[in-house]
């Protein structure tokens, strides 16, 4: 579904990604783990075209996307959920969803507002509420719902558990499992290992802009020194 090969990227003058390679197959939840500043967010942005990749290849659903502007990438069915949520605070829940809306796509689950409100019942109770007057957890659900309105085949989820109360983190994990059940591929950035253990099939560990580990969650669980070295949890 998504294959990244030897990706390099700069943020300003800083060389952040030094040859990142990873892949996510159809219907798979893949976690990209690492400390703050390891390059997770930059990797997501580079895949999405928000930070221009300096070198390397990104292929999505069989086509090169590493020179395309973000809107073209989004229209190919790659969804992006940013870390800071970036809800349109002046727009209502319904309008936020409208901005994300794209035509139905073959080979991807089709979403509409009603289906999304089943997935996130809280949102359904506040359709006309402006995004700025929602709690952090509700905003996190809205930002995911907004991206799903584009009927993506694969979503990039940047730290969905960040800043959420433990109870909400639990609900979030449930929702992501539901998405996987729909056949969606998910590439997930996280610092929260426990959260990933609950939902991911495979994981990569990124440190200083390079992939240091790739394997199943079971491999990672069996390797304490790896976790200690790169994740410090």
């Amino acid at each position: 579904m998504l294959r990244v090969t030897d990706l390099h990227a700069f943020y300003g003058r800083a060389h952040i990604l030094h040859g990142v390679s990873l892949e996510a197959n159809a219907g798979e939840v893949v976690a990209l783990l690492g400390r703050n500043g390891a390059g997770k967010t930059t990797a997501m942005k580079a895949i999405m075209g928000l930070v221009p990749p300096a070198r390397g290849e990104v292929a999505f659903a069989g086509a090169r996307i590493d020179r395309l502007p973000p809107y073209r990438i989004a229209r190919m069915g790659l969804g992006y959920v940013p870390e800071e949520r970036r809800i349109f605070t002046e727009l209502s829940v319904m309008e936020n969803l409208e901005v994300g809306r794209q035509a139905a796509r073959r080979g991807a689950p089709t979403w509409n507002a009603d289906r999304l409100f089943k997935l996130f019942p809280n949102l359904g109770r506040m359709r006309e509420r402006p995004g700025g007057r929602m709690s952090g957890g509700e905003q996190q659900m809205l930002t995911i719902a907004r991206t799903l309105m584009g009927n993506p085949k694969c979503v990039l989820l940047d730290e969905p558990s960040e800043g959420l109360a433990p109870i909400i983190v639990h609900e979030m994990a449930e929702s992501i499992r539901t998405l996987k059940g729909e056949g969606l591929s998910v590439l997930l950035c996280e610092q929260n290992l426990r959260f990933c253990e609950a939902i991911a099939d495979r994981a990569y560990i990124i440190e200083k802009g390079q992939i240091r580990f790739g394997g199943t969650m079971a491999d990672l669980a069996a390797n304490a020194s790896l976790r200690e070295q790169y994740l410090s949890v």
């Binding site: 973000p70 989004a74 349109f88 727009l91 409208e98 994300g100």
Partner: peptide, 18 residues
Amino acid sequence: ALVRAATQDREMVGALGV
């Protein structure tokens, strides 16, 4: 809706396929 969204965060609007 797109105009108002872009007024706040045009990059995000682009990442949503606009």
